[in-house]
């Protein structure tokens, strides 16, 4: 089997815009599940609402495309009712951290044995580019026409603090690292959270002077600060640049987990 075997070919063409990074994340995910030898009929993908959440429909497994923000509690039901399923959640930054924020916190607290992959495009892409809890300060969206005034969420810090066993952040540029992180997350008992910063040229880039895909990807690459480097800067007492975000494995531990198939 290969990663391609996991795609529902009869669903093509997909709805993602040209230049969207979500497809990359789906590819990396399927590469990871396939490399682990997971079986299509033992795996369930669950998603909420938004561009990211359409992903479950393009994959051949049994899948639930649920209501806005609620992918995690649906997934919790699947996992707790039948622990031998491998359960993976796709979510977006708005879906996961705004309307679904409380479910996310409690899934991390329970440390339930599912993997949550957040496609963080920093915007509500599907509904036309409204600001989300992850829209960076100053960024323009249709609901922040004068620039975002609020502070953005650090979803990885949230997940770590709430109790997730495995937390990593990468971008859609870091394909190899991302695939490896997902693979590690899938294997780790307990909740694994992988945040992927992803380009949305249509509804984010267009309004924020990042018109083409290449400039968005360059921006992600340039602003991504490896955790190891961040730690070194801290140790040396050097400042961390304001406009950088940390990528890498941020938490990796083995606390007691819920719903592990024994």
């Amino acid at each position: 089997m290969s990663a391609e075997d996991w795609f529902r070919e009869d669903r093509l063409p997909h709805i993602f815009c040209a230049g969207c990074g979500n497809g990359t994340i789906i590819n990396c995910t399927l590469e990871a599940v396939d490399s682990l030898g997971w079986k299509i009929d033992d795996t369930v993908f669950v998603s909420g609402i938004g561009c990211s959440s359409r992903a479950s429909g393009y994959i051949k497994t049994d899948s639930l495309h649920t209501t806005h923000g609620r992918a995690i509690p649906f997934a919790t039901g699947v996992k707790m009712a039948k622990k031998d399923f491998n359960v993976v959640v796709f979510s977006g930054d708005g879906d996961l951290s705004a309307i679904g924020g409380n479910h996310f916190i409690h899934a991390c607290r329970r440390n339930i044995d599912i993997t949550v992959i957040c496609m963080n495009n920093q915007i509500y892409g599907m509904t036309g580019g409204q600001g989300s809890p992850c829209t960076p300060k100053g960024a323009v969206s249709t609901t922040t026409p004068y620039g975002m005034e609020e502070n953005p969420f650090d979803l990885c810090e949230l997940a770590s603090a709430a109790g997730a066993n495995y937390v990593a952040r990468w971008t859609s540029y870091h394909v190899k690292e991302l695939t490896q992180a997902i693979k590690t997350g899938l294997q780790r008992p307990g909740l694994s959270f992988i945040e992927v910063v992803v380009q949305c040229p249509t509804n984010y880039g267009r309004r924020n002077r990042l018109r083409d895909v290449q400039s968005m990807i360059s921006a992600m690459k340039d602003h991504a600060l490896l955790k190891e480097k961040r730690d070194r800067l801290l140790a040396e007492g050097k400042p961390i640049p304001d406009d950088m975000f940390v990528v890498g494995t941020l938490t990796d531990r083995n606390r007691p987990a819920l719903g592990v198939n024994e």
Partner: peptide
């Protein structure tokens, strides 16, 4: 079987739909 206390009723309803699709 499994009993789980969820964080609210939205989650409870979501979870039993997930549970139902596993055939339980």
């Amino acid at each position: 079987g499994t009993f789980i206390q969820m964080e609210d009723e939205l989650a409870s309803m979501a979870a039993i739909i997930g549970g139902a699709w596993t055939g339980v």
